[in-house]
Write a protein that binds this DNA or RNA. Structure first.
Lengths: 335, 335
DNA sequence: TTGTAAGCGTTATCAA
DNA sequence: TTGATAACGCTTACAA
C-alpha cells in the first residue's frame, strides 16, 4: 500500500514547477527541449501516472465516454464494444458500458446516469428511445453518436446502414432465386423495425408479389425470439420457402425451428440473417447474411464522437454504411 | 449547454452549508430529519447529481472498478460482463472494461492502465499472467478478484470452478457411455490448461485406458480454434469417438469440423463443451456441456470485490463453484 | 445539529 | 521559457 506518486513529486524530483511537468507530459509548447526531456525521464523513473480524476476536475473533460448497448451477449454488438474500446484505449480514453437489454426505460436510465457521471459524450446503439429524448440529452453539453439508426440533430450524429435498402437487397435476392412466399422475422416496434418491414413490403409490391402481414413475426432479437417466431410462421403458413430475419441470432434460432419442424435448410426453407457474426460461417449449413462490420463501426463511432467533442459547433452528416450480401449455404435457388 | 449544478448551488438554494447537503445526500447522521428532507427536496428540484470526479478526488475512492476480460465476443464471458455491470450499477459503481484477447502482455497493460486510473479494485477472468504479477498489483492498494483460476494471496481472491474435477466429470461421463478413444481440445499454455489436461489424463489412467498425448490439441479458445483442432485430431486418429473441449465455442467449432469431415455427431463422434452458452441449446444437435453461470459469477465477483475494498485486512477464501453436467444430444452411448 | 476550513491532483490563467 | 496561484466539486476533520 504505497502512496500515489503525484505531479508534485515529479516536480520536486526534477527541480521544476508543477506546471512545467504538466507542460512536458501533455506535449504543450513553451518549454525547452532540454527541460522536457529531463522531466519525462523523471516521470519514467518515478513510474508516475497522472490521475484521471484530478485531470477531469481541472479540465472539465473526463476523458471518459459512455456506451449504451442493447445486448452484449449478441456477438455482433460485442464486436462494437470491442472496436470502440480499442479505439478509446489508443486515445487514452475510458468507456463506461451500460447494457440496456433493449428496454427504452433502461436506455433512459443509462443516459441519465452517464450524463451525471460527467462523460464527455455517449455512443448508443439501436436506441428504442424517441429522437427527441436523445437530442434533449445531447443539448446538455453531451454529444451523442447513434449507431444503427438515423437521428439528425445538433450534437447528434449517426453511423448506420440503410435498413430499408438492406432489406430490399435481401428480398430481391430471394425473389431472384425463385422464392415467392417469403416470411419476415423482425424486432419489436421501433423506427428500425418499421424500416425493416417497409423494405420488405415495398420489394414484394414492386415485384407484384402478394404482401401479407401474417407472414411477419415480431420477436426479441435473440436466439429464442428467432426460434419462436420461425416456429409460428412455419406452422401456420406451409407455403413459405424463405425467411429473412432482423439479425443472425434470430436466423440461427429460425434454423433450429426448421430442424425441429422437420423442414430442411435450405432445401425446404431458405434462411437469411443480418450481421455476419462468426457463428454464421461456422454452422451447418452456413448462414447467408448481410455483413455488419461491428468492430470497425465501434472504432468509427469513437472517432466521430471525438470530433464532435472537439468541434462542438460543427454539424456532422450521418454516415451511411455500405451493405454486403454474403451468400452461403442457408439459401438456395428454387424453380 | 448549461452549467453544471453543484453542491454549492443546492446549499445556497436550501439555505444551508455545503456540508449539510453532503450529509443529507449521503445518508449520514448528525442532521435533523427536517433539514434532510428539505435538502433532498432541493436536490430533486434542481436536478442535482454529484460529480463522480470530485467525489473520487475528495474521498480517494473512485467508485469505479476495472474488468479485464479475455474475449468479449464469447457469450460466456459477455455474460460475466453483464452480471458484473448490473451488480455495479445497483451499487452506483462504474466499470472500466478492458479486452485482453487472452494475451498476457495486454492483460499487463490493462492492469497498469487501470491502476493508473485510480480504480478501487479489479476483476480479471482467466488471466494468463503469473500469480506473482497479479499479487504485485494487488499490493499496490488495489484488490483483485480472479475469476476462473485459483490464486490465493493478500488482497487477491478467486471465484472459480475446479477445472480438474470438472474435466474428470466429463471424461468419466464419456467413459461411462462406452467411449474408449477420447480426444481433448484445450487452450494454449496456462495454469488452467494444465489442470484441464491433468483431469483428462488422470481419469483415463484411473480407468486403465491408454493416455496418448497426440489426442490432445491446443488452440485458441474460439470457433476457429475448435474447428482446426478437431479437424486435425479427427484426421489423424480415426478411432476417436468422443472429444471434450475447453469451452462451447471450441465445441461448436469442432462440430463444424465433424460435419466437414463427414462424421456425424453424435453417431460417429460425441462432442462435449463447457459453459452452456445460449447457442448450446439452440443448435442441432444440441450440445452436451458443463454449465458455467456467467451472469451470477459476474455479480458475485463484484460483491466480493466490494467486501475486499471495505475490509482490506480480511482474508477471503476462494469460492469454488459447483459444476453441473447438462446432457443433450451431441453425446451418445456406444457399445 | 450545523458550519468552517483544508485538502484531493490536476489544468488554466496570469505574471515574471 | 518558467512559476505562482486560483479554480474544479466534493469529503473529511474539526470547531461552534
Amino acid at each position: 500500500m504505497k502512496k500515489r506518486t503525484t505531479i508534485d513529486d515529479v516536480a520536486r524530483e526534477a527541480g521544476v514547477s508543477r506546471q512545467t511537468v504538466s507542460r512536458a507530459m501533455n506535449g504543450m509548447d513553451g518549454i525547452s527541449v532540454h527541460t522536457r526531456d529531463r522531466v519525462l525521464e523523471t516521470i519514467d523513473d518515478l513510474g508516475y501516472r497522472p490521475s484521471r480524476l484530478a485531470r477531469g476536475m481541472a479540465s472539465s473533460q473526463s476523458q471518459t465516454i459512455g456506451l449504451i448497448i442493447g445486448n452484449i451477449i449478441d456477438p455482433a454488438q460485442a464486436n462494437v464494444v470491442r472496436g470502440l474500446n480499442d479505439a478509446a484505449e489508443a486515445k487514452n480514453h475510458n468507456v463506461f458500458l451500460r447494457n440496456s437489454d433493449n428496454i427504452a426505460a433502461r436506455e433512459l436510465e443509462a443516459l441519465k446516469s452517464l450524463t451525471a457521471e460527467n462523460v464527455d459524450g455517449i455512443v448508443i446503439t439501436s436506441p428504442s428511445l424517441p429522437a427527441k429524448t436523445l437530442t434533449s440529452f445531447a443539448d446538455q453539453n453531451c454529444p451523442i453518436v447513434v449507431v444503427h439508426r438515423e437521428v439528425t440533430a445538433k450534437h447528434v450524429s449517426s453511423i448506420t446502414t440503410n435498413t430499408e435498402r438492406a432489406t430490399r437487397t435481401v428480398v430481391e435476392y430471394l425473389i431472384g432465386a425463385g422464392h415467392q412466399h417469403i416470411g419476415l422475422i423482425t424486432r419489436m416496434g421501433d423506427v428500425e423495425q418499421i424500416r425493416h418491414v417497409w423494405g420488405y413490403k415495398e420489394t414484394l409490391v414492386n415485384r407484384n408479389l402478394p404482401y401479407c402481414s401474417s407472414r411477419i413475426a415480431q420477436a426479441d432479437t435473440n436466439l429464442k425470439g428467432g426460434y419462436e417466431a420461425a416456429y409460428k410462421l412455419l406452422s401456420k403458413d406451409k407455403n413459405l420457402t424463405a425467411i429473412a430475419t432482423y439479425n443472425d441470432l434470430m436466423a440461427l434460432g429460425a434454423m433450429k425451428a426448421c430442424a425441429d419442424l422437420g423442414r430442411a435448410v435450405p432445401a425446404d426453407v431458405s434462411i437469411i440473417g443480418y450481421d455476419d457474426i462468426e457463428f454464421a460461417s461456422h454452422i451447418k449449413p452456413s448462414l447467408t447474411t448481410l455483413r455488419f462490420q461491428g468492430y470497425d463501426i465501434g472504432c468509427s463511432a469513437f472517432e466521430r464522437l471525438m470530433e464532435m467533442i472537439n468541434r462542438p459547433e460543427e454539424d456532422f452528416p450521418p454516415v451511411i454504411l455500405n451493405i454486403e450480401l454474403v451468400i452461403r449455404d442457408s439459401t438456395c435457388t428454387i424453380y
